[in-house]
Amino acid sequence: MTQGNIEYGLNDVVELKKGHPCGANEWKIIRLGMDIRLKCQNCGRSVLIPRLKFNRRIRKILSKGSAEE
């Protein structure tokens, strides 16, 4: 999937413009569709964000994930 020039996929670790209340700002993409499910890499909590809102909030990809994870 693309957002401007950012391509993201399943199991990628991304940084968003706003951090999680636990203090971390690293999220793993665990579901793609109309909504995107993200898992906080610090506390393990997951959130479901509509794709359009996610596309506005993504800042950069920290690491690419593999498809078999």
Rank of each mutant, 00 (worst) to 15 (best):
S66A: 12
R59H: 14
L52P: 01
G23K: 10
R31D: 05
A67N: 13
F54D: 03
D12M: 07
L48T: 11
N55T: 04
S46H: 11
H20T: 05
I36K: 03
R56S: 09
F54Q: 01
S63R: 14
E69R: 15
D35S: 05
P21F: 10
N11C: 04
A67G: 13
G33M: 01
P21L: 12
N5R: 09
M34P: 05
K60F: 06
I29D: 00
K64C: 07
K17R: 13
N5K: 12
P50W: 00
W27H: 03
R51I: 10
T2L: 12
R37T: 05
E69L: 14
G19V: 01
L10E: 09
E69V: 15
F54L: 04
H20I: 01
L10A: 09
G4Y: 08
S46Q: 09
I49A: 00
N42F: 07
L10I: 15
D35N: 10
K17P: 01
C22A: 13
S66V: 13
S63N: 11
D35G: 00
G9K: 15
N55Q: 14
N42L: 14
N11H: 15
T2C: 04
G9Q: 14
I36Y: 00
N55C: 10
M1S: 14
I49C: 02
M1F: 12
N11A: 06
Q41P: 03
K18M: 08
G19W: 03
G9Y: 08
R37K: 10
I61R: 09
N42G: 07
M1R: 11
G33Q: 00
C22N: 09
K28V: 12
Y8F: 15
E68W: 12
E68L: 14
G4K: 11
I61M: 06
N25P: 04
V14T: 03
K17Y: 11
R56K: 14
R56L: 12
T2G: 09
V13T: 15
R37S: 05
Q3M: 10
K28N: 08
L62Q: 03
A67M: 14
W27F: 13
M34G: 14
G33S: 04
V13P: 01
L52F: 08
I49W: 02
D12W: 08
H20F: 09
V13N: 03
N25S: 06
L48V: 11
L16H: 07
D35I: 01
M1Y: 12
K28R: 15
I61E: 05
N11Q: 08
T2F: 11
K39W: 05
D12K: 09
S63G: 10
I36D: 02
E15T: 07
N25A: 06
N42Y: 10
L32M: 13
I36V: 15
E7H: 12
K64F: 11
L32Y: 05
K18C: 08
C40I: 01
W27T: 04
N55S: 14
T2V: 11
E69Q: 14
R45F: 11
S66F: 14
G19R: 05
V14K: 00
